[in-house]
Write a protein that binds this DNA or RNA. Sequence first.
DNA 1: TTTCCAATAAGAATGATTACGATTTACTTT
DNA 2: AAAGTAAATCGTAATCATTCTTATTGGAAA
Lengths: 136, 136
Amino acid sequence: MNLNKAWGILKENGFKETTKRNQILEIFEGDERYLTARDILDVMQKDYPSMSYDTVYRNLATFVSLDILEATELSGEKHFRMHCESDHHHHHFICMDCGKIKEIPLCPMDLLGAALPAYEIDNHKFEIYGKCPECK
Amino acid sequence: MNLNKAWGILKENGFKETTKRNQILEIFEGDERYLTARDILDVMQKDYPSMSYDTVYRNLATFVSLDILEATELSGEKHFRMHCESDHHHHHFICMDCGKIKEIPLCPMDLLGAALPAYEIDNHKFEIYGKCPECK
DNA sequence: TTTCCAATAAGAATGATTACGATTTACTTT
DNA sequence: AAAGTAAATCGTAATCATTCTTATTGGAAA
């Protein structure tokens, strides 16, 4: 996901182009790690000392709802990153040192198939945690 | 996991037998759902109006560290339940309505095998969320 | 340019969790 | 059984992430 595509989605859905919104997206475009709301605020406040948490959280929620960002909960805190470009469903290895991810092309749900008849499956989470080759 | 086994582990590790601790364990023994710290406190305060959060959280952390309870984070809150009896590694389907679980006997990590060479894998999470047959 | 409504700022509120000094309790030793 | 000791608990306050509220600002349409 890049800035242009993100703005396309936002415009399609009637969201206004604001400087704050743009800078939040720029931060994510330039960082492949999972970031917290605080991470974003810290960067933003260098340029906008009056930046508020509310603006960060509100926009992060907007971006996630439009599939511009993807979110996961790591050690009790919500983390965000640009939504993957790859069009097919996949999962992530997450480096707990640097926060970078590696795509895992397969999904365990494929194998489960009809292993859970009578169950309504709404969602699933599969994540692998550890250290990437660079951090090891 | 039952009360006796839990107390065996606790005694082995030098923990004292207290009434509060015992009642927390009894609650988990009698409930197969994932419960929050608040759930525990609410039940306990009927018998012990002075019960404090500190006691709940401290004991939950103790129990998890001794593998008496297992924990997971559901919609931003830590949830706990008795550690499964089954000796082999498995995962869970979790009903988001009633909180009950169903064991999934297979683990996606088996398939990944050597798909992540050079990566240090410390941990993984695989959970399926939805509605169980009773709640559907 | 003016107007309208979304977007933001500022700060208070909330909810979960942790921390801490004072007190009580369980277990050990006498 | 009584006393000693360290663990466990209480009561309360602090902290952290997140959300809410109200007034103000800013983007874009008329």
